[in-house]
Every structure is written in structure tokens, then in C-alpha cells.
């Protein structure tokens, strides 16, 4: 993955999203008005976060069997990159909520659970910092990560559906795609998700490569 083409693809997609996302037509809906365009920017943050956390759990599982330090570094750096996107998702969601639901934080189940799942990953990083011994740290944090990942999935995708939530697709609310994610919006929304996932992955690889060099210098 040390090629350039996918970095360019990600950049082009993200720039396309900014242009098409602001200029192309969207459904005219009450309350949402033009803020429906936030779908192109707020939701891809979460997709990028989930992909990065999936990469992390993959390498955590792998590091348990290989005991390789590189896999452990990959797991932690993808969490580091994923948390940035999660925080951006929370902030953009709060701003969107202020102007459509009335409050920055209306203690909506999905908002709360999203915040909790970010905290789960903060706990992962704190847990790592608390253990000095490298082998032990890799093992314990990998196991923690394997528990944290399904918790995050449940918090974001299962529990909000069971409660009354303001988010589309939750608590009996129809999802965005059922009525207003029409074909015009799909043309922007899917490229936006792919673009931000690629950018997120890129940030992760940069963090990983820096960490590898730092590690090498420490060992020398």
C-alpha cells in the first residue's frame, strides 16, 4: 500500500465531495433545509473511524498470534487515527444537532453512545500507557481491543435502534436511505465515504511509519 494512486484518489474524492456536496441538488425537506448536506461530511467521519478501528482490531488479533511488535504498533496507530475522526464526528454532529434538534447535546442515545465508544478507545490508549513492559502491554491491550470493538459496534448500531433516538434509522425513525437519500445524494455520499476512509487510512499509515522509525532509533 506504499503506492500513491489511492492517496490521489482519496484526495480527488474528498475535493469532489466539497464541490458536488455544496452545489448539486438535494431534497427539500423541512427542518433540515440545506443542512441535509452535512450528511456528506458528518457521516463519512464515522465511517472512517469504524474502518480504522476495524483495522486496529484485526492487527490486535494478529499480534496475539504473531507476537510481533509491528502488528501491535499498527493496532495502536490506527486507534490514534480513528479517534481523530470520531472526535470530528462528535463535533460536527453536535453543530448539526444545534440547528436541527435545537441543542448541541440533547442526550440522544446515539450521541451518548458515540461519546462512550470514543471513551472506550481513550481507555485503550490510557491502558497502554499504564503498562511499561512491552510484551505484556501488547497482549493486554490487544485483548482489551478485542472486547472494545464489538462494544463499539453494539453501542453505535444496536442499542440506539432500541431506544427513541433523533437520529435517522433509530427508534422507529426511518433511515436516511428510506426516503430522502435519493440518487442525487448517493452520487456524493458514497464517494465521500470512500474518500474520507482513504484519507483516514493515509493518516494512519503516516503515523505508523513515523512510529516505526522512532522505534528503530530507540532500539539502536
Amino acid at each position: 500500500m506504499n503506492k500513491t494512486w489511492w492517496k490521489i484518489l482519496g484526495s480527488v474524492l474528498v475535493i469532489y465531495t466539497a464541490i458536488a456536496g455544496l452545489l448539486l441538488g438535494v431534497p427539500h425537506l423541512p427542518i433540515l433545509n440545506e443542512t441535509i448536506r452535512n450528511l456528506y461530511f458528518h457521516v463519512p467521519m464515522w465511517f472512517a473511524m469504524i474502518v480504522l478501528f476495524s483495522i486496529s482490531v484485526f492487527y490486535s488479533v494478529k499480534s496475539l498470534s504473531t507476537k510481533s511488535e509491528i502488528d501491535d504498533i499498527k493496532a495502536v496507530e490506527s486507534v490514534n487515527a480513528g479517534i481523530i475522526f470520531g472526535i470530528l464526528g462528535l463535533i460536527t454532529g453536535a453543530i448539526w444537532a444545534k440547528f436541527t434538534w435545537g441543542q448541541f447535546w440533547s442526550f440522544d442515545p446515539k450521541q451518548n453512545f458515540a461519546a462512550i465508544s470514543i471513551l472506550l478507545y481513550f481507555a485503550y490508549l490510557i491502558l497502554r500507557n499504564a503498562i511499561d513492559e512491552e510484551q505484556k502491554r501488547a497482549k493486554i491491550s490487544a485483548i482489551y481491543n478485542i472486547f472494545a470493538f464489538p462494544m463499539m459496534v453494539v453501542l453505535l448500531f444496536v442499542l440506539p435502534r432500541l431506544k427513541d433516538s433523533l437520529h435517522p434509522g433509530n427508534g422507529g425513525n426511518p433511515g436516511f436511505n428510506s426516503y430522502d437519500l435519493d440518487s442525487r445524494m448517493r452520487m456524493v455520499f458514497y464517494p465521500a465515504c470512500l474518500g474520507w476512509i482513504l484519507i483516514g487510512y493515509w493518516v494512519y499509515t503516516i503515523r505508523f511509519r513515523i512510529r516505526t522509525i522512532e522505534n528503530k532509533q530507540q532500539h539502536n
Binding site: 492517496k7 475535493i15 493515509w202 493518516v203
Partner: peptide, 18 residues
């Protein structure tokens, strides 16, 4: 005007990333 500003910021940040 807004679109141009956003695109400039994005291009700048992405170029920086490159």
C-alpha cells in the same frame, strides 16, 4: 465563493499531507 474557499483549504491540507 464558499466552494472555492473550501476547495482551496482542502487542496492546501492535502498538498501538505503529500
Amino acid at each position: 465563493v464558499v466552494v472555492i474557499c473550501i476547495v482551496i483549504i482542502l487542496v492546501g491540507l492535502l498538498a501538505y499531507l503529500f
